[in-house]
């Protein structure tokens, strides 16, 4: 099944997240990832939801989301027409003998080391999901102790923006 990215503007009210996530479980839709945060307007939050499903499912997801009173706007973002990023923090085992190799990998991926201890390194990486996964794969050999990923966030390329009401510019 194909992955679809939905950008959803919602009222920044308590309970909105549970309404949205409840809708997905209730209607049997699969969420791949969901990221949420406030927008330039503090009364509005933006969710980026990656959904697994065929076109019919995604159409139903959008329509059912639109029925929620707290949902202001739903738009499916085209992969080619949008920029997508994910942030991950990876805590990896680092010994005296592996440390420099890990640092090299981090440089190649243009990632960052944000915490160091005697036997670990914590790495911050952002990029599309494939890049994050690629670094994760490369680091696995050293022993990943913990990983956290934000899920995809995305914006349309160029001048396009999703407006609060009635369509896009």
């Amino acid at each position: 099944m194909a992955k679809h990215t939905l950008s959803v503007l919602v009222e920044n009210h308590p309970g909105v997240l549970s309404r949205v996530s409840g809708l997905f479980s209730r209607r049997g839709f699969n969420i791949e990832s969901l990221a949420v945060g406030i927008t330039e307007n503090p009364e509005i939050s933006r969710m980026t939801i990656v959904v697994d499903g065929d076109d019919h499912t995604v159409e139903q997801v959008s329509k059912q989301l639109n029925k929620l009173i707290d949902v202001i706007k739903v738009k499916e973002l085209d992969d080619a027409e949008s920029v997508r990023r994910e942030l991950a923090l990876i805590k990896v085992t680092a010994t005296a003998s592996t440390r420099s190799e890990i640092v090299q990998l981090v440089e190649i991926f243009r990632a960052k080391i944000i915490d160091v201890s005697k036997n670990t390194l914590t790495i911050e990486i952002s990029g599309d999901s494939e890049k994050v996964s690629a670094l994760e794969d490369m680091l696995r050999q050293f022993g990943i102790k913990e990983i956290v990923r934000t899920g995809i966030i995305a914006l349309e390329r160029g001048n396009k923006v999703i407006k609060n009401n009635n369509g896009e510019e």
């Binding site: 308590p14 309970g15 549970s18 309404r19 409840g22 209730r26 929620l68 009173i69």
Partner: peptide, 14 residues
């Protein structure tokens, strides 16, 4: 009750 009725309500308020 707002949590419990969310699936059966058009909308609800606490």
């Amino acid at each position: 009750i707002t949590g419990a009725t969310a699936p059966f309500c058009k909308h609800n308020y606490l």
